[in-house]
């Protein structure tokens, strides 16, 4: 499933937070997006997933325009994002956070809940097993019964990731998935992302851990003050003087 981002512009007052941004995440692609703080990366995610409306430009999935659809519809079509600042369901347990992300549960309609209790129970059991596996993989199994609001920052990021994976999306946008996650787990998550990618799921990943990101993705795009300034294989992009300038400029 290929995601085409075409000439997206979003301005707050005189400032163009994204300025004519275009690129494609090919079907089954593994693409990174970097840039200094405030470059507009998270805003771009919101534009792509329908949480913000662009001033101009468009987004399409496999050639079908998404411009008139909201975030929930885009997610149902297989385009799902995570948030930089985790939006865990704080009063729900970790297990329930992940279970809530599964699509098409009969028990989510009141009719089926009371008329088809057998079916609801069977679906719940099957889903529960899938969630146990996901929690084991993300090392969340020990906190399965803990309300997600009580987790550490890194664990919340893992809940975000786990929920996105539970949706069965075909293209997943991860906003700084490694922030606060311990290094060993970062490598394991990267391995899992590669594995999912090998099965055809496309990823677009924002990440500040450039080393981890360049090992993961095959293509890297660089955003600076709303504009794309470079794109290509990670090694070449990171060697680009313009990219170095942007980062040094951002740091000064």
């Amino acid at each position: 499933m290929s995601l085409e981002i075409s000439r997206l512009v979003k301005a707050y007052g005189p400032i163009r937070v994204t300025d004519d941004v275009s690129f494609t995440v090919p079907a089954g692609g593994l693409v990174g997006l970097i840039g200094p703080n405030g470059a507009g990366k998270s805003t771009l995610f919101s534009l792509v997933t329908g949480f913000l409306a662009p001033d101009s430009g468009s987004v399409s999935l496999d050639g079908r325009s998404l411009d008139r659809t909201g975030p929930a519809e885009r997610a149902r079509r297989g385009l799902v994002r995570t948030f930089q600042v985790p939006r865990e369901f704080s009063h729900l347990t970790v297990r329930d956070n992940l279970m809530a992300a599964a699509p098409g549960q009969a028990g989510e309609t009141l009719g089926a809940l009371f008329l088809l209790p057998g079916r609801v129970r069977r679906e719940e059991e099957a889903l529960r097993r899938r969630v146990e596996e996901m929690m084991a993989f993300l090392k969340l199994d020990r906190v399965a019964e803990v309300p997600a609001g009580n987790l550490s920052g890194g664990q919340k990021k893992l809940v975000e990731l786990g929920r996105a994976l539970m949706t069965g999306a075909r293209t997943i946008l991860l906003d700084e998935p490694f922030a606060g996650v311990n290094p060993v787990l970062i490598e394991e998550i990267s391995a899992r992302v590669r594995e999912l990618n090998a099965r055809g799921i496309g990823f677009l990943v924002i990440e500040h851990d450039l080393a981890a990101l360049s090992r993961l993705v095959t293509t890297l795009h660089v955003l600076d003050r709303g504009r794309l300034i470079a794109g290509g294989p990670p090694a070449a992009v990171l060697a680009d003087p313009a990219v170095r300038d942007a980062y040094l400029g951002g740091a000064s």
Partner: peptide
């Protein structure tokens, strides 16, 4: 319960 805690995240997961 998820809606009560964070409506945007519910939307992000494909539910209205």
């Amino acid at each position: 319960g998820a809606i009560r805690d964070n409506e945007e995240a519910v939307r992000a997961l494909g539910k209205d």
